[in-house]
Each structure stands twice: as C-alpha cells, then as structure tokens.
C-alpha cells in the first residue's frame, strides 16, 4: 500500500511537470502593426552567421564517429571554404524594400549578439531575448532581426555505414519585434535542405553539392526578404 501511494504521487508529479513543459513559438505572419505605423523607425539587423559544418546523424558510437569524420575529411575541407557572407546583405535588401514602399528603415551595421541580452520570460508571442534596450541605443521603434543556425551538410549513418548521401541544410529565423514591449510581430523559422543535382561525390570540389548549398542559401535569404516586398499584382481575368 505504501508503495502504491508512492507510485501515485510520482505519477501525479510527472503529469504536473509534463503540463508545465514550455511550448515552442509558432510561426507568425507579419503583423499589420508594421505596415500601419508608418511614422516609426524600423531597424534591420542580423546575427553573425555560423561557419558551415558537416553534420553526421544516426546511430554512431565514438569509434564510428572518429571513422566517419576521417572518411568525410575531403568534404569537410570543401565545406570549410563555403562562404555565407551574402547573408550579411539581407538587412540591406530588406531596408531597400521597405524604403521603396515609403517606410523609414535603416540598417544596423554591427551584428546583434542575442546571447549577451537578458532573457525575456513573457512567454509565447514575445521574443525570447529582451531587445528593448536597442530602441534607445539605435533610435528605432521596431527591429527586424535575421539569423542563421545550422549551416552546411547533413548525412545519416548507421555505425560506420552512410545510409544517405549528404544534403545541404540551412536553419534560420526571421523576426520582427516591437521594441516598446518586446512583442513579436513576425516569427518565421526556416529549416530547409537540398540534395545535389546529379552526383555529389566529386572531390575535391564537390561542385553539385556546393551549388546545392549556395542555391539553398539564396532561397533562404529570399524567403526572409519576401514578406517585406511589395506584393505583385496578379493577372486580371475578364
């Protein structure tokens, strides 16, 4: 009986703690607050992108990892040369789009460092870090912030055996934050991958996989810019 009560208590505790688990922020379409408040200043910034890297997923032990890393040395050398510098131009392109539509947008030249900002625990619908200090620092009212997370290639393994070809992968996030209250006006997470067209294993340059990566990078950048573009007028049918 004593153990039954203990088990029931533990079960109840697990249920409560499970209910307290944090939920992920869902994507948010661009709020009209950005378009309606034309007199406000919009700052556009980026987070310094990571260097591209080769990711190996799947069931691997330590020895398997060492072996697989050794076998992927040629690809790693090439991925190390991949360059995401074009991502630093995304704020400038967003600013051009906004300014062409009559908004007051300016680029923040230095990358933002979210890790150095305090956490903001207001929950869903608010940015995870507290960006409100940037309002005074840069004299802006709203912040458009773009960032990349995973950049490079991913390949699955079972032990020392590759079970897929490597594909290019990019993870990113585009946010618009109201700096009055840190509320999210737009939240667009991006997770994309792209296979090489044709043979991937053509060292030392891996041209098809390299092209796939740069195509993926470009499409990710365009995805971040497109919500700010003037919408196209579709054909009128008689």
């Amino acid at each position: 009986m004593k153990y039954l009560r203990l088990h029931l208590v533990l079960l109840a505790l697990a249920a409560v703690l499970g209910g307290c688990a944090s939920k992920a922020q869902q994507p948010l379409e661009l709020d009209n607050a950005l378009w309606n408040e034309r007199d406000e200043v919009i700052g556009i910034a980026y987070v310094e992108p990571p260097r591209p890297f080769v990711s190996m997923v799947g069931n691997q032990g330590l020895l398997d990892l060492a072996f697989n890393n050794s076998m992927a040395a040629g690809l790693k050398r090439k991925v190390d040369t991949w360059d995401v510098a074009s991502f630093r131009d995304v704020p400038k392109q967003i600013a051009e789009e906004l300014n062409s539509r009559g908004y007051n947008a300016r680029v923040i030249e230095q990358p933002v460092l979210p890790a150095q900002l305090p956490r903001h625990k207001a929950g869903l619908g608010y940015a995870g870090q507290d960006y409100r200090a940037l309002k005074q620092q840069h004299q802006i009212d709203k912040l458009v912030l773009v960032s990349l997370s995973q950049v490079g290639t991913v390949r699955s393994y079972y032990s020392m055996i590759p079970t897929s070809d490597p594909v290019a992968q990019i993870g990113g996030l585009a946010q618009v934050i109201d700096l009055d209250d840190n509320r999210l006006l737009h939240y667009q997470p991006i997770a994309a991958s792209r296979a090489a067209e044709g043979e991937w294993d053509e060292g030392p340059d891996f041209p098809n996989l390299t092209n796939a990566f740069y195509q993926l990078l470009d499409s990710t950048e365009q995805q971040m810019i497109s919500p700010f573009r003037r919408p196209l007028i579709s054909a009128q049918h008689p």
């Binding site: 069931n59 699955s156 079972y158 897929s164 070809d165 594909v167 296979a195």
Partner: peptide, 22 residues
C-alpha cells in the same frame, strides 16, 4: 526534362535505414 530530387525523402530514407540497422 529536369525534375529536382527530393532531399527530404532521401534523408528520411537514410535515417529509416539507420534505424532498421539498429
């Protein structure tokens, strides 16, 4: 004609094979 390959299916198949092996 040129039709792009499905990267997601490729990865999913690879991870499925990895799991089957395990």
């Amino acid at each position: 004609a040129r039709v792009p390959g499905d990267a997601q299916a490729m990865l999913a198949g690879g991870q499925g094979a990895s799991e089957a092996g395990r």
